[in-house]
Computed example of a mutant assay.
Amino acid sequence: MTNFGHLEDTDIDIAIDDAEAGERRGMELAARIRMVAAEDPELAQDLVDELIAGLERAMGGSFREYLHQESRNETERALSDSGSGISPARNS
């Protein structure tokens, strides 16, 4: 029997659909933000706030509709802090 060692998910080349690929990219992004947060929590929060503002712009102000109420409150705070020009009341 051959010992192949430890394999990571990224070591296996399998066909995945677009939804799975998007989820994998999202998980990778979350892991990277956690790494930044471990080193510099303020920078990580700034990055998350910018990401939220960008998603809100890209989705025409509808991003917060996909969030739970607690996350919506944080999103509205981030948007008002970022000066994104999108009214938090727009899609409430």
Rank of each mutant, 00 (worst) to 15 (best):
F63A: 13
A44C: 04
A15D: 12
N73D: 15
G54Q: 12
G61K: 00
A15I: 03
D11R: 05
I12R: 05
A19P: 00
D40G: 01
G22T: 07
P88A: 05
M59Y: 07
R34W: 00
V36A: 03
G85S: 03
L47E: 05
E50L: 02
D9Y: 11
G5H: 10
R77M: 10
A30Y: 06
E8L: 15
P41W: 05
M35Y: 05
D18Q: 11
R25P: 07
I12A: 06
F63S: 10
S82E: 12
G85D: 07
E50T: 08
V36R: 06
V48I: 11
T10Q: 15
A44G: 02
L79P: 04
Q69L: 11
A19N: 01
R24S: 12
I33S: 08
S82V: 02
D81S: 14
R25F: 14
S71P: 09
A58Q: 15
E8C: 07
D46S: 07
L55A: 04
S87N: 13
E76P: 00
E39V: 00
V48K: 14
A31R: 07
E23N: 02
H68D: 15
E56W: 04
D49G: 06
A78W: 00
M27S: 08
L7H: 14
A37L: 02
D46M: 02
M35R: 13
S80M: 08
A44K: 01
P88W: 04
E50Q: 12
L67R: 08
L29F: 13
D46L: 05
V36I: 02
R72I: 03
S62H: 13
I52S: 15
A78F: 01
A53K: 07
L43S: 04
R34N: 13
I86M: 13
A37N: 04
D13F: 07
L7V: 04
S62R: 11
E70C: 01
D81I: 06
E65S: 09
T2G: 08
N3F: 05
E50F: 05
D49Y: 03
G5P: 10
L29W: 11
F63W: 04
R25N: 11
L55I: 02
F63L: 00
A30I: 03
D40V: 03
L7I: 08
D81K: 12
E20R: 13
T2L: 10
A19R: 13
T2Q: 15
N3G: 12
G54L: 03
H6Q: 13
G54S: 12
E76A: 10
Y66G: 14
E76R: 09
H68V: 07
A31G: 09
S84W: 08
L51C: 06
N3H: 12
R72S: 09
G5S: 08
G26E: 07
A44T: 05
R34V: 00
A21Y: 12
I14G: 05
L29G: 01
S62K: 12
